[in-house]
Design a protein around this nucleic acid. Structure first.
Lengths: 162, 162
DNA sequence: CTGTATTCCATGGTGAAACACCTAATCCAA
DNA sequence: TTGGATTAGGTGTTTCACCATGGAATACAG
């Protein structure tokens, strides 16, 4: 369905708006799909799953909060409280870090590992279906275009901040 | 910058994850860019601007809350309270709707029109730069791929809910 | 015309995000 | 060593999203 139909827009698009809208709407569908198909039934948020997944892929001794933060997709996430919630559910634990007592290492518990594994299986199934409607060439093209946009956005952000 | 570098991922991607991550990250950059470059300095949220923009493009008598909702990108937005906040700032007003007294029509005030126009100008400048790093052919390709993904996601969502 | 179903909106509660502030540990230069 | 700067992370507050509830107006079947 075309953007204009989808958002019931009657006027013509301004240049550039279409790409922005498509990106916003694309991620909107994606998150809604994963919320419905995955996170909702396990009562976990996408951000929380992201932490579990990062920990799973990390070293056995875990990550510091700052290491988690820079790996999160949503950069300014409130990582300490995110970890608090996971800790309260017993999915994660904090261990003292003798090398630098300012920060503690966050590690998956056995329960957290089990949940991560369960979610990962379903996540893969959903992701595979996302992928499935594109040919490999299209997929690569999409990835490369999105990468170009990211690079450009990063540049513009730097201009705005610097 | 490649996704893997950006998120400091060491392991290989599972199939399909890359597209999902790229979408999430793409919209992340986009919203951050618009927040920094536009919304932050006017002390308005993207959702609030979206309402103003929808009203601007709509009929002179305004829209009902439900008409706003179905045109929002973020579908489950808390539209009544969004309108409350805009109303409190004098950007929007509610008028009785004689045809159906269950809902009132939301209209832009003069102040709201002025702010919308100011934001729109800057929004266009930013959007144009977003567009600028893609050729027209690439732009169309990106839009069409994203549209295909949306259609597929919608289908999957319907399956999950039905 | 009457009772029921439906639609539209507002609101209360819960939980999470944004932003700034605060504490503690570490680093480093004088 | 000691003083300040830096870094890590926790906390307080406000705002907002999300869900469920409820009430008012409308539509409709009988």
């Amino acid at each position: 369905m075309h953007l204009r139909e989808e958002l019931q827009i009657t006027k013509s698009f301004e240049p550039g708006q279409e790409v922005a809208l498509a990106l916003l709407l694309g991620r909107e569908y994606l998150t809604r799909l994963f919320d419905k198909g995955l996170f909702e039934r396990e009562e976990i948020s996408d951000q929380q799953f992201n932490v579990l997944r990062i920990l799973k892929g990390g070293p056995r001794e875990g990550y510091l909060v700052k290491d988690l933060r820079c790996r999160m997709i949503f950069r300014f996430a409130d990582v300490p409280r995110l970890v608090n919630r996971l800790e309260a559910r017993g999915l994660v634990k904090r261990c003292e870090n003798p090398a630098d007592r300012r920060g503690s290492r966050v590690q998956l518990t056995a329960k957290g590992q089990a949940l991560e594994a369960r979610l990962r299986a379903r996540h893969q199934a959903l992701s595979a279906r996302v992928d499935h409607c594109l040919s490999p060439a299209e997929r690569d093209q999409l990835l490369s275009l999105l990468e170009r946009l990211r690079d450009d956005h990063r540049e513009q952000l730097a201009e705005l901040e610097g």
